[in-house]
C-alpha cells in the first residue's frame, strides 16, 4: 500500500497504451465501421430509389396499356365505320349499275322489238302483198290496190 514509482510507471504505460490504441486500433476499426455504415446507407438509398423507380415504371406501363387499348378501340371503330361505308358504297354502285344495265337492256329490247316490228311489218306487207298477189294475181292491179295493201300492212 506504499505510494512509489509504480504510480509513475503506470502513468507512462497508460499514456503509451492510449497512444497505441489511437495509432493502431481506433483509426482502422472506425474506418471499417464508417465505410460499412456508408455502404449500408447507400444500399438503403438505392433500394428506396429502385422502389420508387419500379412504382413509376408500373404507373407508366399501366398508362401506356390504357392508351394502347383506347387507340385500338378507336382503330377498330374507324375500321368498322369504314367497312360499312365501303359496303354501302358498293351497294350503291351495284344498284346504279344494275339500274343502268336494266335501262340499257330495256332500251335495247324496245329497239329490237321496234326493229322486229318494222321488219315484220315490212315483211308482212311484202308477204301479204305476195300472198295477195298470189291469191289475187289476176284480179288485183298493183297500182290500184297498193294504197289499200299499205294501209293493211301499217295496221299490223
Amino acid at each position: 500500500m506504499n505510494i512509489n514509482l509504480t504510480l509513475i510507471g503506470q502513468s507512462i504505460s497508460f499514456l503509451f497504451f492510449v497512444w497505441f490504441s489511437y495509432k493502431f486500433v481506433w483509426g482502422y476499426i472506425r474506418t471499417a465501421m464508417d465505410e460499412r455504415e456508408k455502404q449500408i446507407a447507400d444500399g438503403l438509398d438505392a433500394a428506396d430509389r429502385a422502389g420508387r423507380d419500379l412504382e413509376l415504371a408500373q404507373e407508366k406501363a399501366t398508362k401506356q396499356l390504357r392508351e394502347a387499348k383506347a387507340e385500338a378501340a378507336t382503330i377498330i371503330d374507324a375500321a368498322n365505320k369504314r367497312a360499312s361505308q365501303i359496303v354501302e358504297e358498293a351497294k350503291d354502285v351495284a344498284r346504279t349499275e344494275g339500274e343502268r344495265l336494266k335501262a340499257a337492256a330495256e332500251a335495247q329490247i324496245e329497239q329490237d322489238v321496234n326493229r322486229a316490228k318494222e321488219q315484220l311489218r315490212s315483211q308482212v306487207a311484202k308477204l301479204a302483198l305476195v300472198g295477195a298477189e298470189k291469191v289475187l294475181e289476176a284480179s288485183i292491179d298493183e297500182s290500184v290496190h297498193k294504197d289499200m295493201v299499205d294501209k293493211l300492212a301499217a295496221s299490223l
Partner: peptide
C-alpha cells in the same frame, strides 16, 4: 498491468488491421 495492456492492444490491433467493411 502492462502485460494485460499489451495483450488486449496487440489483439485489438491485429483485428483492427484486418478489419474490413
Amino acid at each position: 498491468s502492462i502485460g494485460l495492456g499489451f495483450l488486449f492492444l496487440v489483439i485489438f490491433a491485429r483485428i483492427a488491421k484486418r478489419a474490413h467493411s
